[in-house]
Amino acid sequence: MTVRVFIDGAEGTTGLEIRERLAGRTDVSLVTLDDARRKDVEARRTALNAADIVVLCLPDDAAREAVAMIANERTRVIDASSAHRVADGWTYGFPELGFDVATARFVSNPGCYPTGFLALVAPLVRAGLIPADWPLTVNAVSGYSGGGKALIARVEAEPDLAFRGYGYALSHKHVPEMRVHAGLTHAPVFAPAVVRAYRGMVVEVPLHLSALPARPTRDDLLGALHATFDGAPLVRVHDDTPAELLLSAQAAPSDLLHLYVFADADHARLVATLDNLGKGASGAAVQSLNLMAGLDPLAGLTV
């Protein structure tokens, strides 16, 4: 079986990586538009309705417009924007957390930061180790490729730019999906930053264990993570506690998500490391596509 796939917005960072991952696969046939037609509304409409699965790599408003252009009940959609991540009728594209991506018609690709945060927090909330109304903080740094072409150009044009903190208005677009899909009563405090590495990401959630009602131990936290992710080929729960975690400026592409728990009797640091362009974007979209089409779940992925 060959699945017809149209990537709407294939010239952006995420779209280009998805196209590269699908190129040459015999189980996928790409529906493409040349440069003269890729912004033509009628050409896009035809391509959207001709595909079995559409992957949207567009700004939020353009993604909503693209969905509205699909005039059949057959075409399925993976949206890599943040337009539908908490929308009714859309399935969140994080199958390891129990979301039924395989049978969904509309799948919203998770954000890169929420992927790390949710992997660390959602299992602990579900296990009752963190109350749903607990005040949480998430600190994170990402490679600059996640900011798109404009930020890539800016960083590469400014050799002295090593760190860029942002999100100080406390209204980052990733926060709603963090709250909703972790099952939280209110949003965490989110402190994101970009560092001078092209790809890669570190997401950290600190906890005061002795203040939590359940007073969980490190073994309790690890147990909940293992119960959720053991057997998931793209998620590694580490029992070890390395002295340091490094983010390489030239990290190789990867679709793995690594989870760590550092703790003493009173405090814990939950840490996730991942490739913001892998499991944090393009890799997650390809994983969802594979599941939706009934193909090898790991095809096109780097494990």
Score class of each variant (00 low, 15 high):
T2Y: 06
R4T: 05
D8N: 14
G9A: 04
E11M: 11
G12Q: 06
G15L: 06
L16G: 12
E20Q: 15
L22T: 03
G24Y: 12
D27F: 09
S29T: 13
V31T: 01
L33W: 01
D34P: 03
D34W: 00
D35C: 02
A36D: 06
R37L: 11
R38S: 00
A43N: 03
C57N: 14
D61V: 02
A62P: 12
E65W: 05
E65M: 03
A66D: 13
V67L: 05
M69L: 05
I70E: 13
N72D: 10
E73N: 15
R74V: 05
R74P: 12
V77A: 02
S81N: 03
V86D: 03
Y92M: 06
G93Q: 10
G93H: 06
A104H: 13
N109R: 03
G111T: 02
V121H: 07
A122W: 13
A127H: 06
G128L: 08
W134R: 10
W134N: 04
P135K: 00
G143N: 11
G148Y: 08
L161M: 13
G167H: 09
Y168P: 10
K173D: 13
M178W: 14
H181P: 12
A182H: 09
T185D: 15
A187Q: 14
V194L: 12
R199N: 08
G200Y: 04
L207I: 02
L209N: 12
L212R: 02
P213V: 02
A214F: 07
R215N: 12
L225G: 07
P233M: 01
R236T: 09
V237R: 10
T241F: 04
A243F: 07
E244T: 05
L246C: 09
L247Y: 07
A252W: 09
L259F: 00
D264H: 02
D266Q: 01
R269D: 02
L270M: 00
L277Y: 07
L277H: 11
S282T: 08
V286S: 08
L291E: 14
A293Q: 10
A299G: 15
